[in-house]
Amino acid sequence: MAATQEEIVAGLAEIVNEIAGIPVEDVQLDKSFTDDLDVDSLSMVEVVVAAEERFDVKIPDDDVKNLKTVGDATEYILKHQA
């Protein structure tokens, strides 16, 4: 069963917490991965791979550059999840 928006944000929050050490409650839809959440370009690759596994979705490298905020990623996963 596909994940809801709320479940995706909660899942991304856990991933970002694991990788960048940011508290889960700080991971909100409007937050930028690089500017707000301490996720640099290499760590973004880790976030993407972890999200692919968790939500059973493929995020091609070309699409990663468009995922600036948690909201961008959530919307992408909602649209593309299996």
């Binding site: 290499l42 760590s43 690759v45 880790e46 791979v49 692919e52």
Partner: peptide, 10 residues
């Protein structure tokens, strides 16, 4: 391949 850490080289 996909799971190899992007931090591996540094």
């Amino acid at each position: 391949v996909r799971r190899v850490s992007p931090h591996t080289v540094p």
